[in-house]
Design a protein around this nucleic acid. Structure first.
Lengths: 129, 129, 129, 129
DNA sequence: GTGGTCTAGACCACG
DNA sequence: GTGGTCTAGACCACC
């Protein structure tokens, strides 16, 4: 699955894995309908507890990234339930504000921040083809 | 201090206050050299625990937003210690990636995400004048 | 049998099939006395495991929707065993309560919930004629 | 907390408790801003494992019923994030369909089912005053 | 004191 | 084989 875990950092393991799987879905490296490794298999591969993987998959399911089917496994969905547009606007706005505050704090200009967003977008979409 | 705390949300109080103080610094509402309220005073004003305020100031000091001077209080710095450009690029890149992943996941286009970033930037800079 | 399975959803396949067969019986598309396909045939048709179909038929038999006759197959009954009115009242009351709790939680009025019930009733009875 | 658990039934304990807490919120017996018992306290009271209560509270938080605040406890919110109207319609429609199928199956008329919904609504709203 | 994360291992339901 | 639930107990972050 090409997931890298930093076991010593302060970010919880489950957040790290959830983030990387979301990225793989958005970038197209994991496609709708595709099957993820089983809980036990991924736990072995990442050397973490199966219960932790279970929690990761459950969280992804709640965010609409995957669907869990008993006896079959975890499958990538074709997108999350649509939230009201103003809810999405608020959520993304909060993330944008955090990005701006940290960027400006470190003496970047709005243009430089915009460039970084574009560069990261290219990296993500590069995997879609 | 014009800080608003959402006591009913799930975001930790200390994160809320840290975020808003950073925002006030970046937007120019708090200027370099300016003195922040004492721990006791701010705790009273926000009706939170003094030890929480203490942790907030410590965290801000670690991030280079304020400098703590023994017995005198917390003073806004003129910016964090200059990190290597690659380090800043990586940190901001991570935030940009999170923004993009969540935005794209909710079916926003890169253009819509860019617009939200611009709108939030206007809100921040509106306070600078 | 005109059963549609959502292989990408999180609802167990057996629940989906049980629900649709019950719906076909209630709406009159399956009539009392009618024979259902054999386990093997339905399993082939729906491309699911025969043991799953077996469990589906067993569950339908337990709920009184069909009767299983040794070596002959599953036949639609003319209704479940008549339970005491209080038992039925309690079971349906529980389902009504769940409907109301979820509806009210999402800011629907009792009138809107009632309308949805009526609309769904029309959809069901449209198949009876 | 006046929660009753059936330890022998087939419905998972966590679903039972989640359902009852939702009902208490919708009916006004638990009001927005009100604090729920701590995880450890409720675990003791219900004689179940603290981890199970934790999962219950987490689920309620994800459904927008409560907000969890570290160091403080669980607090009733003033409602879930607004979903797109068609999503709500679909979710409630599914519950309505289940209600109708079970009711009609047990030989109730649409009028009788409507009466049960009204009666249950009175029971819920009776607690609001 | 509070909730959040992680581990460990049992048992059940689905396919 | 798959995921789902529950228990048990450790350690950390927040207030």
């Amino acid at each position: 699955m090409l997931i890298h875990i930093d076991y010593n950092g302060s970010e919880p393991i489950c957040d790290q894995v959830v983030g990387q799987i979301k990225l793989m879905v958005v970038s197209g490296r994991l496609k709708p309908g595709e099957k993820l490794p089983s809980i036990r298999r991924l736990a072995e591969e990442l050397k973490i507890n199966p219960t932790t993987v279970s929690r990761i998959y459950t969280q992804l399911a709640q965010e609409g990234v995957v669907a869990l089917r008993q006896g079959q496994g975890a499958f990538v969905t074709d997108g999350p339930a649509r939230l009201a547009p103003e809810v999405i606007r608020e959520e993304i706005g909060t993330l944008a504000r955090q990005l701006l505050v940290e960027g400006l704090r470190h003496r970047l200009t709005i243009e430089q921040i915009g460039e970084i967003v574009q560069e990261e977008y290219q990296k993500i979409e590069g995997g879609t083809a």
